[in-house]
Amino acid sequence: MTPVDLDGPWMELTLGAPLRVVSWVLNRPGFITADRILWREVRNADLTPDLDVAAWLEDALAARGRSECPCFLTSRDVRRMKEAVARVGDITARCVATVGLSNAERVGQRMRYDGARWGTINIAVQLDCGLNDAGLLEATSIVAQARTAAVMDQGIALPVGIATGTGTDCIAVAAPPGALGFAGLHTDIGEAIGRCVYDAMTDGVQEWKIDVKRGPWTEADGAAPPEHDTETEAAT
């Protein structure tokens, strides 16, 4: 597999060939064909209140010659990205993730956050087996399960319960086009996806907890305290 290209503030995951990708990224959501997935690291100064973020991102991608590629936005230092690979039977799954939890949420509840401090979890998974659209959708559900399990196992305490993710998480799954429409937990595909995502996420959450050096939330806080990456002094 091609190494991840770190070229701050950009990061590129080269897929090796045009693959079928499903995601809800800002610039190219839904089902598309792409040969790479990008991350763009941003800071508060980049995203001013009057900025049309979608137009800004399109211009930035065009300048880089990547207009056709799905792109995550993250305030996490892209050098903190985490990668894991799992092989089960004949299936190989690769996860690349950036993990920030400064706007952590518990599903079914809502926290109050200053938008200037929002972080996110961005996960891309690449598979080497052909899937149809239904298979890609089920694969995405496995990614979400593994993300949630990893976050919960790290015990990020909120006033409303243990965090399950953030309010701005995004997932992209890429696979060759194919006829296979199943990727459940009981399959080699589902096991490989779950394992690589869980491993990358666990590593990412543990490092994030060290980086931000924060104490637990309390009911009196009402929202997350200011948190900064120790290297970049930017919100995670």
Rank of each mutant, 00 (worst) to 15 (best):
A174K: 00
V22W: 05
T230A: 15
W24V: 09
G178Y: 02
D128Q: 05
T14E: 07
Q145R: 13
W118Q: 07
A149E: 15
N122E: 15
E105H: 06
R87N: 09
P70H: 02
I156P: 15
A60C: 02
N103A: 03
A93D: 09
P49D: 10
T168F: 10
F72E: 07
V4Q: 01
A93V: 12
A200Q: 05
D5V: 14
W39S: 04
G100H: 02
G204P: 07
I193K: 01
G165Q: 00
M11R: 09
E191Y: 09
V197G: 07
G178N: 04
L47D: 11
G167H: 13
V42F: 03
Q126C: 08
P70S: 07
Q126P: 00
A116M: 06
R64I: 00
D46K: 01
E105K: 10
I210M: 06
G165S: 07
M81V: 03
V99T: 11
R28W: 00
A234D: 15
V88I: 15
L15F: 05
R117D: 10
E191G: 00
A45F: 04
V151F: 13
V143M: 02
I189R: 11
I32P: 02
N132G: 11
L73P: 15
H186V: 06
P3D: 08
E41F: 03
T14H: 11
Q126D: 01
Y198F: 14
L131K: 01
G167C: 06
I193V: 13
V4M: 04
G135S: 06
V88H: 08
T166C: 04
I142K: 12
R76E: 05
I162L: 10
N132Q: 01
R76D: 06
D229I: 00
A34L: 01
W217R: 12
P9C: 05
K82W: 01
D203W: 09
V107L: 05
T202W: 02
G119Q: 04
G119V: 05
L19V: 02
T202A: 06
A149G: 10
T218C: 03
V25K: 00
D169G: 08
L73G: 14
R110A: 06
G181M: 01
F182H: 12
F72H: 02
T140D: 14
C71L: 05
G30N: 09
C170F: 00
A146L: 05
L73E: 09
I32M: 06
R43G: 11
A86W: 09
R195D: 09
A192R: 13
D221R: 07
V21C: 13
L19N: 09
G165C: 04
L6Y: 06
D229F: 03
T218E: 04
G222N: 03
V205D: 12
V85M: 13
E207Q: 13
D221G: 04
D133M: 11
G135H: 09
E83I: 08
V42H: 10
G115C: 09
L101P: 11
L6Q: 02
G89A: 11
I189G: 05
L38H: 07
G178L: 13
A93H: 12
L19C: 13
I32T: 10
G89L: 07
V143Q: 12
L136N: 00
V53W: 05
T2V: 04
R110F: 08
